[in-house]
Design a protein around this nucleic acid. Structure first.
Lengths: 197, 197
DNA sequence: GCTAAATGCTTAGAGGTCTAATTATTGCGG
DNA sequence: CCGCAATAATTAGACCTCTAAGCATTTAGC
């Protein structure tokens, strides 16, 4: 197949080229990944015009619904790890979209509040997200989109339960965490698990 | 028991639908992203046991099929930008999986070759990727997987053509534009704050 | 042949995500 | 009451990816 060293290729061009060719069965993961990258790029480009970083979007969306939550809770709702949340919030605070405050009843928890500026973003940003999604599924049978949704959810659940299983098999061990040389032989099926949930 | 609304759905059905289907369209992007993250974690964990980084996998896979290609070509096949390829290859060379060489007929191109060690990984790694994919789609109707594949591809194409359109509108510039940066249509003053720190 | 453009590689810098470890606070059992 | 375990926030460091820009080489146009 002729490969043209055409320059000026965009990310999207590269992806398309890449997917138009034979797609063996084990490429589903790559398809999913490329779709993620495409959606990411598309939303990111639009958000950037409003001085909003892609990584902030998810937190704004949560805060538009429930304001004044802890970072911890924000992390859980966003499905991200705490350091990720932390750095996003730090940046968002600098940008003036949120405010982080400790409340009198706890000196441990950090509560996050939208500023008026952060709240005002909602009107502009929500349509953007809707537009991106509309573009993405344009011309696709809604039933197929629903099927895709179901399938993706099933995949997420499958992977999660596989991880849970693997964790259980690895045994409720001491907190060792060195991923040094390759030693990890889950041959020992953990006699009795007092796995407290 | 549960009284059924006019549409014949129970309360539980509604809830399920809320999370699985009837959620706003903009959640599809999150579903896709979470699926990517799950697949990523799953494959990464397994590859790590063989001292292979997730980001190296895609290049190994290409090289197992065609060895001795330029970095440029590797980038296109992988669907990644050149700096990404570059840093991955640099790391892979340090690990002894590949070798980068210039050939006599060109002092510009850098050709990439697998070392025996890199080639030997194939036997161990390919089954791993297949396993991850098998786990992910376990219990899912193959027809649904096929639909998902089609839908994701359509989404990628939709996004790509949207980008192409936007690029065309932005002006038919030279591919390797220097520091044009001329075009910018701020819909508002845009404070333009750099997070310089 | 000589310059200018195109091409390929590299560097610099950023964003977003993770894991592991550290610090500060809270709450609980003895 | 005291100290230790649990919890929340933070810091540090790593990886993957991108864009922008710089350098080196090759090609093409005059």
């Amino acid at each position: 197949m002729a490969r043209r060293p055409a320059n000026g290729l965009t990310q999207a061009d590269l992806m398309l080229r890449h997917w138009r060719e034979a797609v063996p069965n084990d490429r589903l993961a790559h398809l999913v990944k490329d779709a993620t990258r495409g959606l990411h790029r598309s939303l990111q480009g639009r958000l950037a015009r409003h001085n909003v970083a892609f990584g902030h979007w998810v937190f704004l969306r949560i805060l538009w619904v429930k304001d004044g939550v802890t970072q911890r809770e924000l992390s859980e709702d966003a499905g991200l790890m705490e350091p990720t949340t932390f750095s996003a919030l730090t940046a968002m605070e600098k940008l003036g979209y949120i405010e982080r405050r400790k409340l009198p009843h706890s000196r441990k928890n950090m509560y996050v509040f939208l500023t008026p500026a952060g709240r005002a973003l909602k009107k502009k940003l929500v349509p953007i997200a809707e537009e991106v999604n509309e573009i993405a599924v344009r011309g696709v049978d809604p039933a197929d989109v629903a099927t895709t949704r179901r399938t993706l959810l099933a995949m997420i659940e499958n992977i999660a339960s596989d991880e849970a299983e693997a964790a259980a098999l690895a045994g409720p061990r001491k907190p060792r965490a060195k991923k040094d040389a390759d030693f990890k032989e889950p041959d020992e099926p953990a006699p009795h698990r007092e796995v407290a949930e």
